[in-house]
């Protein structure tokens, strides 16, 4: 795997940091890759802006921060607006479709949309939307091995919620495998295109 930069962003309380931790754990512990995760968050526990940066690589990672993400996962409108300009040309955008309306895009962006919150609610707990999102990410990016990610989900969740989160992961994964990307340039109405 080439060095891949990922940013996951949303509100505090959506499991943004946990999602990045799960993916980083899957990569570094179960797939023998290097993974570096950093995070930033506001002073609020819930509801404030939350963002995680995850870098994956086959060789040791030196620079600790994402400079231009290859993959951007957004779970809030604010996150989408704020981080879209830094997405790499031809990069992947993953959106929580019920929470984000795409108003601007980079050219050639491949967009994948998922109603993660709604799928989580169908399983009975809104809180597990991050596991849905991790599953969806795994399905659409094909970056990480699904069994590795499932093991990392199991490792990262307290026993009482483990089965539910694994169900959420599978649901997100299946949903992701059934989707194909919408490539920016034509399909989106009322969307401004940002220059690099």
């Amino acid at each position: 795997m080439q060095l891949t930069e990922i940013r996951i962003a949303g509100f505090g309380g959506q499991g943004v940091i946990l999602s990045a931790t799960i993916l980083g754990r899957a990569a570094s512990i179960y797939q023998g890759l290097f993974a570096t995760m950093t995070q930033s968050f506001g002073p609020e526990a819930r509801g404030g802006a939350s963002s995680a940066q995850l870098i994956l690589s086959e060789s040791p990672i030196l620079y600790p921060y994402v400079t231009q993400p290859d993959i951007l996962v957004v779970m809030s409108q604010e996150a989408c607006t704020r981080f879209m300009p830094e997405l790499k040309d031809g990069g992947i955008l993953i959106v929580e479709q019920d929470l984000v309306r795409i108003s601007a895009l980079k050219p050639n962006t491949r967009v994948f949309s998922v109603p993660a919150t709604r799928l989580a609610e169908e399983l009975g707990k809104r809180m597990i939307l991050n596991s849905v999102m991790v599953g969806f990410f795994t399905g659409v990016t094909q970056l990480l091995d699904r069994d590795a990610v499932a093991r990392a989900v199991a490792d990262s969740i307290p026993p009482s919620l483990r089965d539910l989160n694994l169900k959420a992961f599978s649901k997100g994964l299946d949903y992701g495998l059934s989707q194909s990307a919408t490539v920016a340039g034509g399909e989106f109405e009322d969307v401004a295109y940002l220059e690099d």
Partner: peptide
Amino acid sequence: EVVGHMTEK
């Protein structure tokens, strides 16, 4: 702060 808050293997 970076080393403290950075997560790695």
